[in-house]
């Protein structure tokens, strides 16, 4: 089904998407929020620029955007895929528990904050360019990969990467780690993305955006993991 979204209120657009019950293509999207919220089992292709909270609580659907997305993409996402042929704003994948987000370009601040994994739910975000500050803050599980494919001479991540991290992993494709890491995080230098899961995520990102895998699979990565599962255990005194 095709929907022409020009001038539509988000509630009307979302209602039309929900009612269609089939794969949907949206044209002329201009900032409508909450597209695909909670959707399962369907493909939605979006032309234009969706608004905040694209795919919030997404539960299995696959969303493709042929441009940039705004803030809070994939908020509390539980399953499915969001593929963005552009860059994403702040708080991408907030508290995400499952599914995958692939971003061709950069992400803003607070990407993957409080991402968590649970049994078969293994959330992942793969970012082609750079990430802003607070990447993976409070991360409790899942995988964040930043591929650093950009030509600006800026660090691959901003400040406070992984602050409060107590699970999961962050992979940064770079030769030298120029960001200062907080005490809760340890970094190891590895060749290639490391685990099978990480390799397959990088391959999937390359396939989705038509990139040659080789430079991504053979490069140097920094793998960040938490120092402890219970970082605050010693903090309290029963009173």
């Amino acid at each position: 089904m095709k929907i022409y979204a020009n001038g539509m209120h988000y509630a009307a657009l979302n209602a039309a998407v929900r009612q269609s019950k089939e794969d949907t293509e949206i044209f002329g999207c201009v900032g409508q929020r909450y597209l695909g919220a909670g959707l399962e089992d369907r493909k939605i292709v979006i032309h234009g620029t969706p608004g905040n909270a694209l795919g919030a609580y997404l539960n299995g659907a696959e969303l493709t955007v042929d441009g940039n997305v705004q803030e809070a993409t994939g908020d509390t996402m539980n399953g499915g895929v969001i593929e963005v042929h552009g860059s994403a704003g702040d708080a991408t994948g907030y508290a995400m528990r499952g599914g995958k987000i692939f971003i061709e370009g950069d992400v803003g601040y607070r990407c993957g904050i409080h991402m968590k994994a649970y049994l078969s739910h293994r959330p992942a975000i793969v970012i082609g360019g750079r990430a802003g500050s607070f990447l993976g803050e409070y991360q409790a599980g899942g995988t964040l990969i930043v591929l650093g494919g950009h030509t600006e001479h800026k660090p691959i991540v901003g400040n406070f990467c992984g602050t409060g991290m107590h699970g999961g992993e962050i992979l940064l494709r770079c030769d030298a780690l120029d960001a200062a890491l907080p005490a809760q995080v340890k970094a190891e230098r590895i060749q290639g993305p490391g685990s099978e899961e990480a390799v397959s995520l990088v391959k999937e990102w390359c396939a989705r955006f038509g990139k040659d895998e080789t430079p991504y699979l053979t490069a140097t990565y920094y793998r960040l993991t938490p120092n402890a599962e219970n970082p605050y255990r010693q903090m309290y005194t029963p009173n």
Binding site: E71, A72, D75, D90, A91, Y94, R97, R110, I113, H114, K116, A117, Y118, H121, F134, E137, Y138, A140, G141, G164, H166, G167, E229, N230, P231, Y232, R233
Partner: peptide
């Protein structure tokens, strides 16, 4: 809670969004 066993469950002070 849909989180692993034995790992601290931290609710940050603010909603970061």
């Amino acid at each position: 809670r849909m989180i692993p066993q034995g790992v601290d469950a931290i609710s940050p002070a603010p909603h970061h969004d």
